[in-house]
């Protein structure tokens, strides 16, 4: 049984089909990469998966349940979407890592936060840094940690490595591997990056509203 699946998924905006009848599935603990031209609808597709957009037709199932029947807020904590150009909240790194705790009305666990920072090659000394003092790569890593403070079942990363230096990219990949290995996290990663595409195991290309598997030995 796939963990996440779409059936005839379609999304239209202003009379045009951006996503046009996609049948696709993701297995638990799988890491897939999606690529495709800019404006081809990659973000639209994953926002549908994250229940941030309403499909025009078709269904999405999570653990065999139609996501329309699930509470959207609880679902988004299980299938977590990391945006392309995140904005950090408040003033410090701590506030950002505390946000997921606040949402769940739980006390902030500092030790856990430090451990999380270490998965992306940051550390305890970064916890109280002001967000204005972070580099682009550090900001992106902190933003991404907000998605995994409480480990979701699926993590969707929408071009989060675009424009990052190779060290930051490396840290992000290390973090993904860590959670994939330890917590059976499934990952959907959108990217244009040559290097990332070369290392992708399950690669799909989105074009003309359709998602097609790419044969990597061509």
């Amino acid at each position: 049984m796939p963990q996440l699946a779409t059936s005839n998924l379609t999304y239209q905006a202003t009379g045009r089909s951006i996503i046009n009848g996609i049948d696709w599935s993701l297995e638990k603990q799988e890491i897939v990469t999606i690529t495709g031209p800019s404006g081809s609808g990659k973000s639209t597709f994953v926002r549908l998966l994250a229940s941030l957009l309403e499909p025009t037709s078709g269904t999405i199932t999570f653990d065999d349940q139609d996501i329309e029947t699930l509470d959207p807020i609880a679902y988004r904590r299980r299938v977590s979407y990391a945006v392309q150009q995140p904005t950090l909240f408040g003033k410090t790194v701590r506030e950002n890592l505390a946000f997921p705790y606040q949402l769940r009305k739980k006390p902030f666990d500092e030790q856990h936060a430090v451990k999380a920072l270490q998965t992306v090659d940051l550390g305890a000394s970064d916890l109280d840094r002001e967000i204005t003092s972070l580099s682009g790569g550090e900001k992106q890593r902190v933003a991404l940690l907000r998605n995994v403070m409480f480990v979701p079942e699926v993590l969707i990363m929408d071009e989060v490595t675009t424009g990052l230096d190779s060290d930051s990219k490396g840290s992000v990949h290390k973090m993904i591997d860590y959670f994939n290995d330890r917590h059976q996290l499934s990952v959907i990663m959108i990217t244009h990056d040559e290097e990332e595409l070369k290392h992708a195991h399950n690669l799909y290309r989105l074009a003309d509203g359709k998602l097609a598997e790419v044969d990597q030995h061509e």
Binding site: L52, I73, R76, R77, Y81, A82, V83, P86, F99
Partner: peptide, 12 residues
């Protein structure tokens, strides 16, 4: 986009 980000993190 900021609102979308919070919703994506599971905010009401």
């Amino acid at each position: 986009s900021q609102i979308l980000e919070m919703l994506a993190l599971g905010a009401s």
